[in-house]
């Protein structure tokens, strides 16, 4: 594997994205709207929000991410430029890794935008340390991006791919989604310190397993 080639692909995608702003604009707008909808749906000043809030925050990323992150592959497929990448001597691993890095940059931007917005809209007082919360969230997003990017590479040739992606990726993402919600709740509502949250290790283990498999299987996914 040649990490320079993967980074070249990520750099190229970021440059294209910051000139067209096609995806990021959509992601930010969509997460803003979703947060607003969640806010409308929740009873104001309800004590239950302390428990439910972390889950709502997390689902903003899942909803926006599911729609936005698959664009990285689907766009290249639609424009035919993916074949240009595959003609070059780069393996599937480099292409997938490039897209993971690019998607991670996008979702971190969404995080930067959505977390303060969430706190302001819901008037949420985080019980634990803010840094711990950001770390837990970022780790969850890393897992989400690794699995989501790889699955979107698998489904990009399918009919009705945006729908197929949801159906295939969601169950594979549950070992990231469930522990992250629990861990977020423990930091944000219970104020537990990061070291005492076992769920984080579960996410980490899943990321390692899925990254290894993606590494081994990427060439099979992107071979034609």
């Amino acid at each position: 594997m040649d990490a320079r080639k993967a980074l070249a692909i990520a750099r190229k995608d970021l440059r294209v994205e910051f000139r067209s702003r096609a995806t990021i604009q959509f992601l930010l707008l969509f997460s803003f709207l979703t947060l607003l909808m969640f806010n409308f749906a929740s009873p104001p000043f309800s004590p239950a929000l302390r428990e439910v809030g972390p889950g709502l925050l997390w689902f903003v990323f899942i909803f926006a991410g599911m729609l936005g992150l698959s664009r990285a592959f689907i766009k290249e497929k639609e424009l035919g430029t993916l074949e240009g990448l595959m003609l070059a001597p780069v393996g599937g691993v480099e292409i997938v890794l490039g897209k993971v890095v690019y998607n991670l940059c996008l979702i971190l931007l969404v995080e930067l935008f959505s977390v303060p917005l969430f706190i302001a809209l819901f008037d949420y007082r985080v019980a634990g340390s803010m840094l711990d919360m950001i770390l837990v969230l970022t780790l969850g997003l890393l897992g989400f991006v690794v699995v989501g990017s790889f699955v979107s590479a698998v489904i990009m040739g399918a009919r009705g791919r945006e729908l197929v992606l949801q159906v295939v990726a969601m169950p594979l993402l549950l070992p990231v989604v469930i522990p992250t919600i629990l861990a977020l709740r423990r930091v944000m509502a219970d104020g537990a310190p990061l070291a005492r949250i076992g769920e984080v290790r579960l996410v980490l283990a899943y990321i390692i397993i899925m990254s290894t498999l993606s590494f081994l299987l990427s060439d099979s996914v992107l071979e034609e």
Binding site: R4, R15, V16, R19, G80, T81, L87, A88, P89
Partner: peptide, 30 residues
């Protein structure tokens, strides 16, 4: 792959990049 070049009706180029950036990107891949 290192020994062939393909030109098809799809140019395999990125519209949002300049001509020089396109070539520099593919040079990195090769």
């Amino acid at each position: 792959k290192k020994r062939i070049g393909l030109v098809s009706h799809n140019p395999f180029l990125y519209n949002e990049l300049t001509a020089a950036e396109n070539l520099a990107f593919f040079a990195e891949l090769y």
